[in-house]
């Protein structure tokens, strides 16, 4: 297998007949699909529909029970340097905001000089300069989420996975997340994100993958999904009438 280098693109992401099972029970089963670069991809569906599993499997945190997930021919483990993920409950290290970003950059193999420049750039771009030296664990929930996104973005991934990044956030922070995501998309980074914030999906556009009970029921442009969903579950979800 050829060695990956920083200039090489890892998209498209190929997901082939993947299933994820625990204790004999299937929690996610997909057909074959490909996720390409460009516009963001949103995973929609009620709680327990398999969105987080889908993201974690693509990111390489969960090994599929069956099927394959590959990045331009590489498996998830080989491609981790080119993709980042913001977990639903991100864990921040017991150190400053700056040191948290530095840790992620060091893990991705950047030199001290490169890290210094990148940290300044990210702190400025995300508006975290004022709290750069504050202990990350003492930040508010919104600030912690901003730091988690900044930390993931700092490594300049080709693909950024986000698991419900606006959950439990106040409107101000949600708005900040949306602006940041727009900037990320503008900078040609691919976003794959699960969310319950349908307004955000409508505003950012892109495509929607709709999941229900561990199955992909629809995959279409977000505009199309909201205007004329093709499945009864999709219609019920948009009408806020679908539960797990």
């Amino acid at each position: 297998m050829p060695k990956l280098d920083r200039t090489q693109k890892i998209l498209p992401l190929s997901i082939r007949e993947v299933s994820i099972e625990f204790l004999g029970r299937c929690f996610l089963r997909t057909n074959t699909l490909e996720i390409k670069g460009g516009e963001p991809t949103f995973l929609l569906g009620p709680n327990g529909s398999g969105k987080t599993l889908f993201l974690k499997a693509c990111h390489g945190l969960i090994e599929p029970t069956q099927g394959t997930i590959s990045w331009l021919g590489y498996n998830a483990g080989d491609a981790y340097r080119y993709q980042s993920m913001v977990l639903q409950r991100p864990v921040l290290l017991r150190r400053s905001t700056r040191a948290n970003i530095d840790y992620a950059l060091r893990a991705s193999g950047l030199s001290k000089e490169q890290r210094k420049d990148r940290i300044q750039k990210v702190l400025k771009a995300t508006g975290l300069e004022k709290i750069a030296e504050k202990a990350a664990r003492n930040l508010s929930g919104g600030e912690q989420q901003r730091l988690a996104i900044a930390r993931a973005w700092a490594t300049e991934p080709e693909v950024l996975f986000l698991d419900e990044p606006t959950a439990s956030l106040d409107p101000g922070t949600s708005s900040w997340v949306e602006r940041t995501l727009s900037a990320i998309v503008t900078n040609k980074h691919k976003i794959v994100m699960s969310t319950h914030d349908l307004g955000l999906v409508k505003r950012l556009g892109g495509e929607v993958i709709f999941l229900h009970r561990g199955r992909i029921l629809e995959r279409t442009l977000s505009k199309t999904f909201f205007e004329c969903p093709t499945t009864p579950e999709g219609r019920a979800f948009i009408a806020n009438e679908l539960s797990w």
Binding site: L61, Y80, P90, V91
Partner: peptide, 20 residues
């Protein structure tokens, strides 16, 4: 239990994870 998934996500290896 608290950190493993996050550190793996950041691309930290097993030894690096333990030291962290």
């Amino acid at each position: 239990e608290e950190y493993e998934e996050q550190l793996t996500s950041l691309g930290v290896g097993k030894i690096g994870c333990l030291f962290t």
